[in-house]
Amino acid sequence: MSNAGRAASRISRGTLDDGTVIPRRMRVAIVAASWHEEVMDGLIAGAQRVCVEAGLDPELVRVPGSFELSVAAAVLASRKYQAIVALGVVIRGGTPHFDYVCQAATNGLTEVSVHTGVPVGFGLLTCDDEKQALDRAGLPGSSEDKGAEAAEAAIVTALTLDRLHA
């Protein structure tokens, strides 16, 4: 598969496509689950690449699984980060575990963002199988790069919120 399906990035050399300069003082954290190493490596690389293109040096925090993303994001939001990128992957199995983890992680990350006012880029893949996850991981041959998309969403939203507060 090609990378042709990827959306063009709004971030280039420390600015947005509308000319908005991304302040180098913006603090970004990437919180990433550890399960499914190959997929996670791709998601993290995509998020880090977008941050570097934005002129930022993100802090990477690893947690055991996607269920733990919310609590780590909450702590990071309380520590003066302007944007958080949450990355994980949950692959459907033969039990309801998939549904519980996906719902808890989604609700938890939404709560962090709404209650703290810190945007959380949602890079949690919820897939039926490993092939779907690999296709979204931003790896060579993947059609999507959800790690990059989540980082861009968090950074752009942080800048938008900053303008609203001005």
Rank of each mutant, 00 (worst) to 15 (best):
Arg6Val: 08
Ala8Gln: 14
Ile11Asn: 10
Ser12Tyr: 09
Asp18Leu: 05
Thr20Gly: 06
Ile22Gly: 12
Val28Pro: 08
Ala29Val: 08
Val31Ser: 06
Ala33Gln: 08
Ser34Pro: 10
Asp41Val: 11
Asp41Arg: 14
Asp41Phe: 08
Leu43Arg: 08
Leu43Ile: 11
Gln48Thr: 14
Cys51Arg: 11
Gly55Glu: 11
Glu59Trp: 10
Glu59Lys: 14
Leu60Gly: 10
Arg62Glu: 13
Val63Gln: 08
Ser66Arg: 09
Phe67Thr: 07
Leu69Tyr: 07
Ala73Val: 08
Val75Tyr: 14
Val75Lys: 15
Val75Trp: 14
Ser78Gln: 14
Arg79Leu: 06
Gln82Arg: 13
Ala83Gln: 02
Val85Cys: 07
Val90Asp: 01
Ile91Ser: 03
Ile91Glu: 00
Arg92Gln: 07
His97Glu: 01
His97Tyr: 02
Cys102Leu: 03
Gly108Ile: 04
Leu109His: 01
Thr110Trp: 08
Cys127His: 04
Cys127Asn: 03
Asp129Val: 11
Glu130Ala: 13
Glu130Tyr: 11
Lys131Glu: 15
Leu134Asp: 04
Arg136Met: 13
Ala137Leu: 10
Ala137Asn: 06
Ala137Ser: 09
Gly138Cys: 10
Leu139Asp: 00
Lys146Arg: 13
Lys146Asn: 09
Ala150Phe: 01
His165Met: 03
